[in-house]
Write a protein that binds this DNA or RNA. Structure first.
Lengths: 238, 238
DNA sequence: TGTACATCAGTGAACGCGCGTTCACTGATGTAC
DNA sequence: TGTACATCAGTGAACGCGCGTTCACTGATGTAC
């Protein structure tokens, strides 16, 4: 490990790898996930097509790395939002999460599409891997949020009858282990919270709000305020 | 117009055209919108690639026809639901709309993706066309729904401040012409209702609920009941 | 009813293209002594 | 510090493939008289 020198090669390698990924995402943003092409990336980098194979063993490898990166970045973003919420109140945590999620999605629409949109054609995602692990982290963050809100929100969910068997074992066991006091209805609320953010973000990212509304953020904020209110949480300013 | 005989050719032509579209959608379901290929369609129909050009002038033409069909089918479905709702009550209309929308999306996931997911690579949608007209019809149905519910739902939206200028002119004028009594906050509610259905449906169609929940329909129903409740509408059974 | 002509769905071969991937190679960078 | 060797990013040519699209053609179906 002859530090400074060897890490020069390593650094160049890391930079090139990052550039390949960045260009792949850029192309995806323009034309959908099908347009990720090793040859096009190489062209843009001023390299020969074959040179990419110094960095990724195949196109599928690149897509897998991309996917893992994106899940990781999203999970980090949301965990950070949870940690740095202005106060510990459930309302603040929910709003911080919602803001962070939207900010990430709007700043990185390609990433959002890669994870939540159509699959890359011809790419078969590995059954278990970094993506599954990150999905786990995302669920954990959402469950933490609902757990914080549940003491105040439980009443508003009184009419919802759920059993643990309504959920897949992996989600049910995650919930029961991390938050033993939470009932199944709280897990349902967690998924509905997620979908509520997702609906507005997906419409915005895919351009369906463009012809409807000038400031999608305002609509998103209003919906989140409505959520806070109907859950019976304390208003934001305390 | 030598009826029976000439319409034989016309019928065969219509059947072949429909088959081309059906196969295109089927391929899209398997591999995303990028996988719509004239050659693959011709192969599956036992024809030569060039034969497709008897029915569509180009691949873009096929995609445009597909998109128009899908928008039309969705608009027809939702308009029918509005017309045949069990009673005229706002609650019944909202639930009928929500059911019809989900039923359509789950029965036709390819269609849902074509409209709400990634674009077909290399396809530039025409600026004005059947798609825009159908989108208009969809907005009109949603506005009708909110108009029916507004007398009861207005109170729950008291905190929402909207101006007409918050919306794009096309949407604002559609709302003001069709329902002159509706305030801007009702249009916002309309978009939020749409996005609320969309969130759960998009997650389900794209497979993100598969690892979470056994019966996504139950979650969707629960969310719609919650919506009804928080809007202050009368419960479903009257 | 029969014949001459028009229509037009479908053929088969060809075009040029961009793709992922392989392979023998070059040459600069880094390592060991 | 200098030399011999190893590593490895990148080259350039080639492969086979599927694609959209064009084009001159054939032959069955439909039309007009």
């Amino acid at each position: 490990m002859g530090d400074a020198t060897q890490s020069r090669r390593a650094r160049l390698r890391a930079e090139a790898t990052a550039e390949i990924k960045a260009i792949a995402l850029k192309h995806m943003a323009a034309d959908g996930p099908a347009s990720i092409s090793l040859r096009a990336i190489a062209r843009e980098m001023g390299m020969t097509a074959g040179a990419i194979y110094s960095y990724f063993a195949s196109r599928d490898d690149l897509v897998a790395a991309l996917t893992a990166d994106v899940y990781d970045s999203l999970a980090n973003t949301l965990e950070a939002a949870h940690r740095t919420a202005p106060s510990g109140s459930a309302t603040d945590k929910v709003l911080a999460h919602a803001h962070a999620y939207r900010k990430w999605a709007i700043a990185n629409p390609e990433e959002f599409r890669l994870v939540y949109g159509d699959p890359v054609p011809g790419y078969a995602a590995p059954e278990a891997g970094a993506a599954q692990e990150a999905e786990h982290r995302l669920c954990a963050v959402l469950l933490g949020l609902v757990a914080a809100a549940w003491p105040q929100a439980a009443d508003s969910q009184a009419g919802c009858d759920y059993e643990w068997s309504d959920f897949r074992p992996s989600l049910a066991s995650l919930a029961r282990e991390s938050f033993p006091d939470l009932p199944p209805a709280a897990v349902a609320l967690c998924l509905r919270f997620w979908s509520r953010m997702h609906g507005l973000l997906a419409l915005e990212v895919y351009g369906h709000l463009r012809h409807m509304v000038g400031d999608p953020e305002k609509l998103y904020e209003a919906d989140m305020q409505d959520l806070i209110r109907t859950l019976g949480l304390a208003a934001a300013g305390q």
